[in-house]
Design a protein around this nucleic acid. Structure first.
Lengths: 212, 212
DNA sequence: GCCTGTGAAGGATTTCACAGCC
DNA sequence: GGCTGTGAAATCCTTCACAGGC
């Protein structure tokens, strides 16, 4: 696997994987880059080029074997295993995240939740009991946790991120409305609906679609 | 305003605007591209270039006037006004979105909510009463709605998007885990925490940070 | 001296277009 | 005939570097 795969490519692979899951569920056994591209609004050349970073998965004249390519993509992305996740911040947002059923089936298991407020500490949330935020570092030292989800208010988010990083976490999903800083060996993704809305209003203010 | 502003640039402006709000709240009156860049992990040159698409807002030797630039950015983005939003899908996710307090203060007002299930139709949700999904098209014909938020299950999402588009909506925030198709004159943004997680696992699987 | 605004350079990503294979 | 894999070309985006103003 040649080093230096563009990050944009990595970000598209999960999209391909999801589409392949659907095709597999529908019983499709082969798909061409053309057909997959139509499904996803991506050019066939882009799909082929993206996949070519990792190997040669297709067959000329036929296309890609659906379950085969899906298995490959899952391996490449590392979504062929279980990942242990902790949630920090159990306000309304944190509760919604914990109760959201979308992570579990994809192999992301919430193994602990933390909050600083006595009101929620000790309550049950999904499969876990909410712990006090003071015990975060200790817990992370004693237990394997791969990914941290941050759902605390904006003014606490950077501090929480720093603590997660200091405890050895290398991947963070941040729901707080700040662009948190992390060292270069930590991946962070931001979920920020307000920013998404604010970039759309640019276009509807003028009624000019993006990209023209 | 020169035509053809790259979409990546538009996506960064809300980030700048948010940082400026904070600086303003802290009472800062001037900021250089250097200082703003440090706050946001962006190069100063990028900030200057981005802003230069829209005009000349800085003063040599000083930097940018914080409230002045913020006002300009708000105008450019169209976030200096109120936007009327409707929510489609009032399951757990939809409820969390409606009760999430982050949209209102930014000028996004939820004016209606819709669901197909008798269990929630008629219940109060924030400031609105949930209507039956059958009345969506009729409501959109009779009332100005600028942005649609989609929070229905994946298998219904494309249909809902199509109905919103058919009713003249040009901006959609999609929480469903599908890459919905829209015509070129409609903007759509996807909020997809699972995809975000799945792109991070690539890096932590190898312990190679993004971009090297 | 400090900092913006911006052409020009450099780098990254996407698309083209076609050889090669089923 | 259909479709992949891939160098090469084209496009898009970022960074450089400096003239010019405060």
């Amino acid at each position: 696997m040649p080093l230096e795969i563009p990050e944009v490519v990595i970000n598209r692979l999960p999209v391909y994987a999801r589409a392949l899951s659907e095709l597999e569920a529908r019983g499709e056994s082969v798909v061409s880059s053309q057909a997959l591209g139509e499904l996803l609004d991506v050019t066939p050349a882009q799909i082929r080029k993206d996949l070519s970073y990792f190997g040669r998965f297709g067959k000329q004249g036929r296309g890609y074997n659906v379950p085969g390519l899906l298995t490959k993509l899952r391996e490449i992305l590392g979504i062929d295993r279980q990942w242990r996740v902790c949630l920090v911040g159990v306000g309304r947002l944190g509760q919604a995240i914990a109760e959201y059923g979308g992570f579990g089936p994809q192999g992301f298991v919430v193994v602990a939740a933390f909050d600083a407020s006595g009101a929620v500490v000790g309550t049950r949330l999904g499969d876990v009991v909410v712990r006090h935020a003071d015990s975060l570092d200790e817990f992370l030292k004693a237990n394997r946790v791969d990914i941290g989800i941050v759902a605390v208010p904006a003014n606490e988010a950077q501090r929480v991120v720093d603590r997660l990083v200091a405890s050895g976490i290398h991947a963070i999903l941040n729901y707080a409305p700040i662009m948190a800083h992390v060292p270069r060996d930590v991946v962070i993704r931001h979920i920020d609906p307000v920013l998404a809305m604010q970039s759309m209003t640019f276009y509807i203010s003028r009624h000019v679609p993006p990209g023209e």
